[in-house]
């Protein structure tokens, strides 16, 4: 892990995966690369964390999966957001907003 990469904060993985899927359906590797990209390479989600999260979120009903062909015509499992997933994304976004605001307040306090 390069020094710029940071361990994921507790509870941020779900938010990041949901956010990465808002652009459209994606397989696991795609989601992982998308997160890397939108966080400017700060977060690298390893398969050991990614897949348990994807499966758990599918069981929660936030995302659904289907088998499709990848860019290189390889069979891959794709995930897409469900309605419940979009709602969850809003909830998580708000929650995250509150946390960053609170942390910023705490750090600004003298």
């Amino acid at each position: 892990m390069s020094p710029e990469q940071t361990n994921l904060l507790q509870g941020t993985l779900d938010l990041l995966i949901l956010k990465s899927l808002i652009a459209g359906e994606m397989h696991g590797l795609g989601a992982s690369r998308r997160i890397q990209q939108i966080t400017g390479g700060t977060f690298l989600v390893k398969p050991g964390s990614l897949f348990p999260a994807l499966h758990r979120m599918e069981e929660e009903g936030w995302i659904s999966s289907f088998w499709g062909d990848s860019e290189n015509n390889r069979r891959a499992k794709y995930y897409r957001l469900t309605k419940a997933g979009r709602r969850q994304l809003e909830v998580e976004t708000k929650r995250w907003g509150r946390i960053t605001w609170a942390i910023a307040q705490a750090l600004d306090a003298s």
Partner: peptide, 29 residues
């Protein structure tokens, strides 16, 4: 959730095969 639970319970082999394929395809990619 209930559907997933039942699936995990009764379609154990299929769920496992699915998982296996997914992880392998991830590796290949």
């Amino acid at each position: 959730k209930a559907r997933s639970f039942l699936r995990n319970l009764f379609l154990f082999r299929r769920v496992e095969a699915d998982l296996d394929q997914e992880v392998h395809s991830h590796l290949e990619m």
